[in-house]
Design a protein around this nucleic acid. Structure first.
Lengths: 117, 117
DNA sequence: ATTCGTTATGCTTTTAAATGAATAACGAAA
DNA sequence: TTTCGTTATTCATTTAAAAGCATAACGAAT
């Protein structure tokens, strides 16, 4: 929203990945995945995003339930309180989403130049 | 959400047209425009969409304020209670939005085949 | 066995958005 | 000048989502 803004119109967009008619992934959830990957815990991820742990945890739970195989491996207990790490499926999910998102961004940019209202 | 659904993943998306950092148009607002065009009034449009007249009216007001020139011409009073009609800018807005939306849809479809998780 | 930071979960509270209801203003047509 | 269905606007209510809070469960390391 702040970068590459010139006069005239600009397009924002969002994509969601569905499986049948249940939502698997969106921007917010992918961001959670990315932060879990980097920080090693749902709690840290949620704090970074200023999102309640409650919700982040719920989202992870949902993602895991809905995907064919879990995206996040959660570890309660343990030395420093366990934590959470991405599964291979989780890693793939991020890549897939970001790749498509980037492509769409470029496409839209290309197709919305010299638009005016 | 109900058409063309096969197994595997499918992508949903939404686009918004911004002018600087204020939102001008989204799917919902375009739909209002289309229904105003067809029915001739904000009230009818809102009823069709099961949306409160309050909100539909507010959205039209906002669109008109934010666009360079108004998208809807509103007519209080008059024989059968006036009504509302699209301006030329309003007509153009619909076309522009739907055209881009369609292109993006096709693009995404093409770029999300054989995606899996 | 104790510790410690995380996951896990229920319950209440806040917040934001949409709705609903009520009423005034409008103005062309009859 | 009366009528009628719309636009215009205020205010209270409902609703849904997110946040906040409190507490249990967990389990590797010490």
């Amino acid at each position: 929203m702040t970068k590459g803004m010139r006069r005239g119109l600009n397009i924002e967009f969002r994509i969601w990945i569905y499986k049948g008619d249940v939502k698997l992934l969106g921007k917010g959830r992918v961001e959670i995945l990315e932060r879990i990957k980097r920080t090693g815990s749902i709690l840290s991820a949620s704090k970074e995003m200023k999102m309640s742990y409650r919700q982040a945890w719920q989202m992870v739970k949902e993602m895991n339930e809905r995907a064919v195989s879990p995206l996040v491996e959660k570890k309660p207990g343990g030395k420093n309180g366990g934590g959470a790490v991405l599964t291979e499926a989780g890693e793939k999910a991020i890549v897939m989403f970001r790749k498509l998102e980037k492509r769409v961004e470029v496409f839209i940019k290309k197709n919305s130049e010299r638009m005016e209202l």
